[in-house]
Nucleic acid binder design. Structure first.
Length: 833
RNA sequence: GCCGGAGUGGUGGAACGGCAGACACGGCGAGCUUAAACCUCGCUGCCCCUCGGGGCGUGCGGGUUCGAGUCCCGCCUCCGGCACCA
């Protein structure tokens, strides 16, 4: 209250008052029957771990500004809120501190919801959802079954990522630098039977459809996704594996994938992954089984980080068999080596040491021959005997029989076609993207709606029996054991087979929480429907999302999965669009002293503390003013105190205007100048806000308030001041909604500022008759002239010659050329004379 | 290695190819005050100056242009992603 006395601006009084008023009027509930065109403003919904942090505040300040701005543009805006409320943290709290994960989750949701209310976020609370509610996850299960029926959900044995600390498997996307994304523990590999979703079936389309997003998504996000999908073009080539004494024709066929079929003549050996299913059999055939087993044991002891680090030690053993090169019948020694990965391509490669660094390293370590088959264009051909750097560059094919002399891309094409003609090869595309592993050995997640029956095998839970509900947490023992706690719950697992009615077992794994969040934007369209996942009519009205906002950290995982789900649902006929998010804006992270804020680092700045000192408007405005929204913002660099001062100043300007009354005063010039400032601001702020340039939009609003202050000092009063302040209030309302609402009402309005229209500028007011134009002599500014806007070049030149400093620089020199950019610039180019 | 992005005052950051540093933060000075805080006003890229002005300045080196932070070429540094992916 002391602040208020001093400044006339008391957010602690204003903010709760308007929040109540908005809520009473249900101002922000999206109506289905509205005549205004719909606008779907969506932000990435939060995970309920404790209270909101500064990152949330920035994200929500952006999301809310977008929604409120579009409402001022005349749209019927849907700006919903919900919680991504399944997940590991809740269960870890249960394991470590004996807390009920459900209780923990819903308590946190209430805490966050209260903080959101205090921030004045214009959410449509009537559409609120939680992914951990049975009413929601029933439909997550339904979608899973849709995918299952389509053959896009399957169970398979696989070497999976295993976090020994979280005691669960992880998706590839959840492993960073070999460590678990949640607890940083080193991830190990474990052979397990797991559920996968066939995202690889959509790889091509996930890549191709990005062209629809080219202008509306951040380039950075598109690049990250392209990288992740990792498309490469090459050829599948069939080799035969034979014992030395065996005829080539007798050998077993094995396919390799290569991006460089043009280098087939440069292959000098052949490598398979240690896990290759045939490796041991070949070692047996080649009499090398002992060496192979010893090698496998060495590999097993290595950590994955060691194994997958680039430039590793190139361990490997010969298997004693030979691979027959289909282009020339050459017999190449076959090795097993751990630099070849089972998970990419076919787990077998042809090794071309002259043109691949990894192969060259291996060749040098094992004394294998090197043969150059591509001669570089302008450099000297490398010496195969001594080279240590593979020649990966372009050039002409050599040492390759009939293909000699061709440029390498053409060789690539020709060799592949010739192989294809002989049935020994084909053009092939490979992706780095793997299928999405979605099962988790966890309690607090959406149960996978499958029943295992000894007689019938995998049986989907019938739709009418959904949801498969989680048992009450009080009936479950939360001990880390590498198996879902559900497996210990007899009442959950034992079930009659829906098909044969015999005894059967429920699947006890639950789904990755990214499944929950891959379709929530559809549920928001009709959250109360209990007979369908989403109402087709409502989805047609709101989807695709007009503007999605959220953190860059979800550039790959969530956004890729959501795109995948949308395409799958499209193919199944449930939605009629293929991309869920028309426009995307990512905001940066909030740091403190250059590091991410975290409890463990002790550098946490709590939103609540800032709100209790300065209010929600100040916090929100500070976040948006800090810099470009997509950049990281360091809390040490921003000044809520400065923002607070500005909002106080603005309040005083309004109060001063109200006190002065509506009678016009001030000189014509001063009044015209204020009006110009107002309309300049309207023109500028509108463009900036539409382009997410909130930092400059706020700067322009500050300029406008500075102009009002100056005008008031100059004795201006009445209409021009009112016009400026009203425009400022409306334009400020998406950013600092409470103070904007307060000022709007102090200016005498009854209706909410939130339902006004964005002001329009009058272009006529922006033009001035007389402009100040800089005058350059030889490119350097030497003075300025005041001329009529439409002044001709000779008038400008005459005026420039009258400027003493300009005249001085022209002295003794002849005018060679005059550049006159009307109203902007006069440049006089001279030559000695 | 491959793919993105960025280098501008003490700081965060602005700048359709046209007066670099908008708007802030911080700093300095003045007013108000018994005093301080608050508030208001002024100054604030660096260097020189006879106070008129002059020189330099957007990571580095070239180029295009009357004119380049901005466009082109070649580097350097930093950040992010991918990576024994054949």
């Amino acid at each position: 209250m002391t602040d208020a006395v001093r400044t006339g601006y008391d957010p602690h009084e204003i903010e709760p008052r308007w929040q109540q008023w908005w809520s009473d009027q249900r101002l922000f509930e999206a109506r289905e029957d509205a005549t205004a065109p719909p606008f779907y403003a969506l932000h990435m919904f939060p995970y309920p771990s404790g209270d909101l942090h500064m990152g949330h505040v920035e994200a929500f300040s952006l999301a809310d500004a977008v929604a409120r701005y579009q409402r001022l543009q005349g749209y019927e805006v849907m700006n919903p809120i919900g919680w991504d409320s399944f997940g590991l943290n809740a269960e870890n709290a249960a394991i470590r501190r004996g807390i009920d994960p459900k209780q923990w989750t819903y308590d946190n949701i209430e805490t966050q919801a209260a903080t959101m209310q205090r921030l004045g976020l214009a959410w449509d609370w009537s559409r609120r959802l939680h992914t951990s509610d049975p009413e929601y996850y029933r439909w997550t299960q339904w979608i899973f079954l849709q995918l299952y029926e389509a053959g896009w959900a399957y169970r398979a044995d696989s070497e999976v990522n295993w976090c020994p600390s979280c005691q669960t498997v992880l998706a590839n996307e959840q492993v960073h630098d070999g460590a678990c994304e949640y607890c940083d523990t080193e991830v190990t590999k474990k052979p397990l039977t797991q559920w996968f979703l066939k995202i690889t079936d959509f790889a091509e389309r996930l890549l191709d459809d990005m062209r629809h997003l080219e202008d509306t998504w951040p380039q950075r996000v598109l690049a990250l996704q392209r990288n992740w999908i990792g498309r490469s073009e090459g050829a599948n080539v069939t080799f035969r594996i034979a014992a030395p004494s065996q005829d080539a024709e007798q050998g077993e066929e094995v396919v390799v994938y290569t991006t460089r079929p043009d280098t087939l003549y440069g292959a000098t050996f052949f490598v398979v992954a240690p896990e290759h299913p045939q490796a041991r059999a070949w070692a047996q055939a080649g009499g090398a089984v002992e060496a192979f087993d010893a090698f496998r044991e060495r590999v097993r002891r290595k950590s994955d980080v060691e194994r997958e680090a680039a430039g590793g030690d190139k361990d490997g053993v010969p298997l004693g068999v030979e691979a027959v090169n289909p282009v020339n019948g050459e017999r190449l020694p076959v090795y097993a080596a751990d630099y070849v990965l089972m998970g990419y391509g076919t787990g077998a490669i042809m090794a071309v040491p002259a043109h691949d660094q990894r192969d060259l390293d291996f060749a040098r370590a094992h004394d294998l021959p090197v043969r150059v088959v591509v001669a570089p264009e302008d450099a000297q051909a490398p010496d195969p005997a001594t080279m240590t750097e593979a020649a990966a560059g372009e050039g002409t094919t050599v040492n390759s029989g009939p293909y000699d002399g061709l440029p390498w891309p053409e060789t690539k094409d020709r060799i592949t076609r010739d192989l294809a003609a002989r049935g020994l090869g084909e053009f092939a595309v490979n992706y780095r993207l793997r299928d999405w592993l979605v099962s988790r050995q966890r309690f607090w997640g959406c149960p996978i709606p499958i029943i295992h029956c000894e007689r019938c095998g995998q049986v989907p839970v019938p739709e009418e029996e959904l949801p498969v509900e989680l048992p009450d947490p009080s009936e479950v023992a939360f001990t880390p054991g590498g198996e879902s706690p559900l497996a210990e719950h007899e009442g959950f697992t034992s079930v009659d087979c829906p098909r044969c009615e015999g005894p059967a077992q429920r699947e006890t794994d639950t789904m990755d929480t990214f499944v929950d969040s891959s379709w929530y934007f559809l549920r928001y369209c009709s959250p109360d429907r209990d007979d369908v996942a989403f109402d087709p009519e409502a989805v047609r009205r709101w989807m695709p999302v007009d503007q999605y906002t959220g953190g860059i950290e979800h550039a790959i995982l969530h956004l890729l999965y959501a795109r995948f789900f949308t395409k799958a649902l499209h193919d199944l006929g449930h939605v009629d669009f293929v991309e869920p998010f028309t426009r995307l804006k990512s905001q940066g992270m909030v740091l403190k002293d250059g590091a991410a804020m975290s409890k463990s680092k002790g550098n946490l700045v709590e939103p609540k503390e800032v709100v209790s000192e300065f209010g929600a408007d100040t916090l929100r405005t500070t976040m948006l003013f800090a810099g470009p929204i997509e950049d990281d913002v360091d809390w040490s660099d921003v000044s809520p105190a400065g923002t607070f001062r500005w909002l106080s100043r603005l309040t005083r300007l309004v109060d001063a205007h109200v006190a002065a009354g509506e009678d016009d005063a001030g000189t014509d010039d001063a009044r015209a100048s204020l009006r110009r400032a107002t309309h300049q601001a309207i023109a500028g702020v509108g463009g900036d806000v539409a382009a997410f340039k909130y930092n400059t939009a706020i700067a322009k609003l500050m300029e406008l308030s500075n102009a009002v202050g100056a005008a008031q000092r100059d004795g201006v009063a009445g209409a021009p001041v009112r016009e400026a302040l009203e425009a400022a209030a409306v334009m400020l309302s998406p950013i600092a909604p409470h103070v904007a609402e307060e000022l709007w009402h102090r200016l005498g309005h009854e209706q909410s500022v939130a339902v006004q229209r964005w002001p329009e500028h009058d272009p006529a007011l922006l033009v001035t008759d007389i402009v100040t134009v800089p005058v350059q002599v030889d490119g350097k500014v030497r003075g300025e002239i005041e001329v009529a806007v439409e002044a001709a070049e000779d008038e400008a030149l005459a005026a420039a010659r009258d400027v003493a400093n300009v005249a001085r620089h022209l002295e003794g020199r002849a005018l060679a050329k005059t550049i006159w950019v009307p109203g902007r610039m006069l440049n006089l180019v001279t030559k000695p004379g």
